[in-house]
């Protein structure tokens, strides 16, 4: 097993420095911010568990060759379909999915398909009733169809912009 190599330590130090500044200049709000962090962590812990399990299932069932076939350079329409579907049904904040995408990326997942996944997340099935309530059914259908069209377009453009040698 490889040694654990943490990512984002500098970013975390920067945020800790911000917290120190806030605690100096606005101490009253620190408890409120900590409460928010606590409730966010509680809310997304089940999502983290889901992401870790999903990544394990993908690692277990999909060997690198299969990931390349489904999500690599020659994945075609299947790769687009699976990543759009994944984006639509995935829940929780985007950053919760970074470890899984990062892991799949190391096994050949195309950048264009990562962009597909990220943009398709704008279609949020549990929130569709809110959208229908706010904008009406025709508008909701139109917007979501456009989201999927533009998710595919965005993926294609990203693949054109990031050539293989640059990856």
């Amino acid at each position: 097993m490889k040694k654990l190599k943490f990512k984002g330590l500098k970013f975390l130090l920067f945020v800790i420095a911000l917290f120190i500044l806030v605690s100096i200049f606005d101490f009253e709000n620190i408890a409120k911010i900590m409460d928010k962090i606590g409730s966010m962590l509680l809310r997304i812990l089940p999502i983290f568990a889901l992401v870790i399990t999903l990544t394990a299932i993908i690692n277990y069932f999909l060997k690198p060759e299969k990931i390349m076939r489904y999500f690599g350079e020659n994945s075609g329409i299947k790769g687009i379909f699976y990543t759009l579907l994944g984006g639509i049904i995935s829940h929780g904040p985007m950053y919760a999915w970074y470890p899984m995408l990062d892991d799949m990326r190391k096994h050949g997942l195309k950048f264009g398909l990562i962009a597909n996944f990220m943009y398709a997340r704008a279609v949020k099935i549990p929130l569709l009733p809110f959208m229908v309530g706010l904008f009406g059914l025709p508008f909701t259908v139109i917007v979501n169809v456009y989201i999927l069209i533009f998710a595919i377009l965005q993926g294609k453009i990203i693949d054109l912009l990031i050539k293989e040698k640059e990856k």
Partner: peptide, 29 residues
Amino acid sequence: TAFKKSLMSFLALSPMILAVIGLVALFQT
């Protein structure tokens, strides 16, 4: 083994995830 590997990948990104959560809480406040 697959689960352990997945957990390690997640733990490797945990400082970044914590930092994002902290930043989000600051913005929301």
